[in-house]
């Protein structure tokens, strides 16, 4: 959800995410108060910068992960549509979009394997008996295969990106650890001061007052209509 907000891209949210946001909105309308802790750091700029870098890397990593997953789901939906098109009447095996990425990739891979094999076998037969070959079918199957292949490449690209960003995140977090150990006043003592410098923890609450509730209701009504 954070990834979708940061990227302003609704497609990074799943249906379940949307459902949870709607539930949360209704809970807030019913008067739920959600306690939260806010962390802030004031003090040495090196530390502040290191923390900033780490947070940035972390959020980029989250976005990359969400992007990868949405690419996988795009391929899974494509596979499902093809299976439905092929057997419109029978009960078809469909990929469960909310399954884990590993499982979806595995199933998509076997779809591509199967498509390629069927097409290859047909083409070899058609070469021997060109007159009885259904060229429209061959073209259709080739289009499906090439489109799934393109989606597969997208997934691969997204996952390579996740790997690269993960490395950046590890580096940033190592840097942060290094700064912490360099600048730490004492390793094992928690120092409590006036709160001008150091890590600040604030307790806040998310809740809606009457006016805000009315705003949310108006917005929800637009969506629901």
């Amino acid at each position: 959800i954070f990834a979708a907000i940061e990227e302003e891209n609704d497609l990074l949210m799943t249906d379940e995410d949307v459902e949870e946001m709607i539930v949360l909105a209704f809970e807030l309308l019913c008067g739920r108060r959600i306690p939260m802790l806010v962390f802030a750091y004031r003090g040495r700029w090196e530390l502040a910068a290191a923390l900033d870098n780490m947070e940035k890397a972390r959020s980029e990593y989250r976005i990359a992960q969400a992007t990868g997953l949405s690419r996988i789901r795009a391929l899974a939906s494509f596979v499902n549509n093809q299976n439905l098109k092929q057997n419109p009447e029978q009960e078809t095996f469909l990929l469960q979009i909310n399954h884990s990425a590993d499982l979806l990739v595995e199933q998509a891979e076997s779809f591509l394997d199967q498509k390629a094999e069927t097409l290859m076998t047909y083409c070899l037969k058609a070469k021997k008996q060109p007159k009885s070959a259904d060229m429209r079918w061959v073209k259709e199957q080739a289009d499906v295969l090439s489109e799934s292949l393109a989606l597969w490449k997208e997934i691969r690209k997204a996952y390579e990106r996740i790997g690269r960003i993960h490395a950046v995140l590890i580096k940033a977090s190592e840097r942060w650890e290094k700064f912490i150990s360099t600048f730490a006043v004492s390793d094992d003592k928690l120092q409590i001061g006036k709160g001008l410098r150091g890590l600040k923890v604030l307790e806040k609450e998310i809740a809606l007052d009457a006016e805000q509730k009315s705003d949310v209701c108006q917005q929800l009504a637009v969506f629901l209509n």
Binding site: L112, A116, L119, M120, K139, L145, Y159
Partner: peptide, 22 residues
């Protein structure tokens, strides 16, 4: 994250064979 292998040679082979036929 899942291991996403490189596109397989068989996938390309089938595509090339089909395109040749068309």
């Amino acid at each position: 994250p899942p291991v996403v292998v490189a596109p397989k040679r068989d996938w390309y082979k089938a595509l090339i064979e089909a395109r040749r036929l068309i």
